[in-house]
Amino acid sequence: MKVYFKSFFSAFTKGYATEKELSLPEGTTIADVLTEFGMDPEGDIIMLVNGRPLNERTVLADNDKLTIMPPVSAA
């Protein structure tokens, strides 16, 4: 299945969001994707699937859009 992945964590280091189209086996979770990218799935990460906030245990489906963002709270 295909999942469209977008990360805003690279906005800190590279100055732009990272976008990739991933080919994944059925049953892949958000945690699997984050681990693949070297991130701690239990870390502080906003995880959106098709715009909906979900957790790392969420199983992804074909054509899902997975967006991850850093939680920021200063002002």
Partner: peptide, 22 residues
Amino acid sequence: QNTILVAGLAGFCFDLVPLTPT
């Protein structure tokens, strides 16, 4: 409303992230 505006000044990254309410 139901959108996050992201601003990253390092590369002048501006983006809109749609949100879907439950």
